[in-house]
Amino acid sequence: MRILLPVDGSARSLDAIHHGLRLARDGLQASFLLLNVQEPTHLYEVLMLRDADARAAAAREAGESALQSAQALLDAAGLAYEVEITTGDPAQQIVEVAEREQCDAIVMGTFGHGALSEALLGSVSQEVLQHAGVPVTIVRHAPPAEAPPATGPDELAEEG
């Protein structure tokens, strides 16, 4: 099974990583694809940084930074994964990458930011649910007291 894990660098997106780790710990044979979607370039950014290659490099660097925590969790668990960084509308890119990369499922956090987004499911999550051609699991954000324990390679070995 190939699972797409979209990550924006927020704690909410890391909830999906923790869920993926739990699935692997429970015996699911899966490969993971970490995805970060950078917002399209705004006019201000074009005016400030006119070199298209420099803008692309900046987006790539921001994507790599957003993926660091997710990669650290998967590395600590000893799980293999691939990484993709794209630019565009997050929901559209998630759906397109899942299709293009022949993913069997998408596991994602709510991507919510702010009080209103927390009250709702989140627009990105809603759009992915509506348009994805594969099963989508939305992982509820657990407050710090409910957060799952870190899953490292020792814990996987003990339980596996």
Rank of each mutant, 00 (worst) to 15 (best):
E99W: 12
A132V: 08
A98Q: 02
L23K: 07
P135D: 08
G20W: 07
A62Q: 11
D89I: 00
I138K: 04
A30V: 14
T137D: 02
E155S: 13
S117T: 05
G63V: 12
I138L: 12
P148F: 05
V139N: 06
L5V: 14
I85S: 05
M1D: 04
S69T: 11
L129W: 10
G9M: 07
H141G: 11
H113K: 12
A66I: 10
L14M: 10
A119G: 10
S10M: 09
Q126C: 09
V37G: 11
H141E: 14
D53I: 03
A66F: 04
A91F: 06
A119Q: 13
A56E: 09
E118C: 07
L121K: 03
V139Q: 03
S65L: 13
D104A: 13
G122N: 05
I17D: 00
L156V: 13
P143S: 07
L121W: 04
G27N: 01
T137G: 09
H19P: 06
A115F: 12
A70S: 03
R60N: 08
L49E: 08
A115M: 08
A72M: 02
P90I: 01
L43V: 05
G160N: 11
D26G: 01
A76T: 00
A115G: 00
T86S: 14
S117M: 03
F111I: 00
T41F: 03
Q93H: 04
G133Y: 12
E101G: 04
L79I: 02
R60G: 04
I106T: 01
